[in-house]
Write a protein that binds this DNA or RNA. Structure first.
Lengths: 193, 193
DNA sequence: GTCTATACCAAGATAGAC
DNA sequence: GTCTATCTTGGTATAGAC
C-alpha cells in the first residue's frame, strides 16, 4: 500500500470531523494540516484543486457511507419493516451519538446552499437527503399510501434534522432521541390520508 | 437624529441579511462595508469590538423582534388559541418567505455552537429557541398535559427548523408549509399522553 | 513521485487624519 | 466626533527543492 492512499484517507477523515464541528468556511487548511501534522503546503499534493476538492471528496464519502451502510437497509426485502427500522435506528444512534458536532450534511446545506458565487456542494447534499427520504418512505409503505409515505418520510427527516440541531445547541440528546421515538411511533400507526 | 444611529442600524440590517444567506464565517467586514458603501475601516467606528460585537447585536435584534412581534402573540389571554396560531403562522410565513436565505438562528446554532474557542453566540440562540418552544407550548395547553405541550412544542420547532433547512436546500417552500400544516393539525388534535 | 519554503492576497483591526 | 490610510495576520496556493 503506497503512503499516498493512507494519508489522503487520513486527511479526508480529519477534514470530515473538522467540517462537522466548525463548518466549511471556519475550517482552514492550516487547521487540517495541524490536525494531521503535515505542513499545510503539503495538503496541495493530495488535493491539487484545494479546499473545494477536499469538501467534494468528504461529502461523497459521507453520502456513500450512508447510502451503503444505512439507507440500504430499508431495501432488504426479506426483512420486516420493524426489524429494518431497528437496524437503521441503531446505525443513526451510533453515528450521531459517538461523534462531536452535528450533521455535516445539514450544516453544509445551510452554509453553502445560498452562496452567490457557486453552490458547488448542493448536489451531493441534496442527494443525501433524497436518499434518506426515499429510504424512510419505503419503511412507511405498509402503513400508508405511496404519497403519504413520502410525506411521512419528509416529516421524519425534518424532525430528525431539527433534533440534531437542538441536540448540538443544548448539548442534550433528548431532541434527537425523541425524534427517533416519534418516527418509530408513526411506523406503527396506520395513516388515514 | 444623529447620523450615527441610522448608519449603525443600516449596518446591522445589512449584516443580518448577509449572515443569514452566507453564514457568519463566510461573511467578511469587506462584504458588509461593500454592501453599505463605506470603507471597511469605518466599520470599526460603529463596532469597536469588531465582527463579534456586530454578530451579538444582530442576534439580539433578531431575538427581540421574534419575542415582541411573534412569540408574544401566544400570551394574549383574551384570544382563542386558533386565532393566536393563525397570527403566528402568518408572521412566520411573511418572515421566512419574503427573505433570501434561511433561518439565521438555525445557521448560527450549527456554525458556532461547537467551535472550541468560544461559543459566544450560544446564549442568544438558545434563548431564541427556548422562547419559541415556550410560545408553542402555550398554544398546545388546551389539547395536552403541561409536559405533553412541551413535547409537542419541541416537535413543532424541530419539524419547522428541518423544513426551513430543506426549503433552503431545494429552493422549495413545500417543506416549510407542510411543517406549518402539521403544527396546525396537532393544535386541533387532543393528545392521549 | 514526495514534500516544503515562499508568494500572494484577503481578512480583521489600529493609529491617526480631518 | 467622524472617517480612512495603513498595518498585521492568517489564509490559499505555487514554484521549486529533494
Amino acid at each position: 500500500m503506497p503512503a499516498q492512499k493512507t494519508s489522503k484517507e487520513r486527511l479526508i477523515v480529519q477534514a470530515m470531523q473538522l467540517f462537522r464541528r466548525q463548518g466549511y468556511y471556519n475550517t482552514s487548511i492550516g487547521d487540517l494540516s495541524k490536525a494531521c501534522d503535515i505542513p499545510k503546503s503539503h495538503f496541495y499534493y493530495y488535493f491539487p484543486d484545494g479546499k473545494e476538492q477536499l469538501m467534494d471528496e468528504v461529502l461523497m464519502a459521507v453520502r456513500d457511507y450512508f447510502d451503503q451502510r444505512v439507507f440500504q437497509i430499508a431495501y432488504k426485502t426479506e426483512q420486516s419493516p420493524e426489524s429494518k427500522w431497528q437496524q437503521i435506528r441503531q446505525k443513526l444512534e451510533r453515528i450521531f451519538m459517538n461523534q462531536q458536532g452535528g450533521c455535516i450534511m445539514g450544516l453544509t446545506a445551510l452554509e453553502t446552499s445560498f452562496v452567490p458565487q457557486e453552490p458547488r456542494f448542493v448536489p451531493a447534499v441534496r442527494n443525501y437527503f433524497e436518499e434518506m427520504i426515499l429510504a424512510f418512505a419505503v419503511l412507511f409503505q405498509p402503513v400508508s399510501s405511496p404519497e403519504g409515505a413520502i410525506l411521512l418520510a419528509q416529516r421524519s427527516v425534518q424532525d430528525l434534522q431539527g433534533g440534531l440541531m437542538l441536540m448540538q445547541l443544548y448539548k442534550d440528546p433528548q431532541y434527537f432521541h425523541q425524534a427517533l421515538n416519534r418516527i418509530e411511533d408513526s411506523l406503527q400507526t396506520p395513516t388515514q390520508a
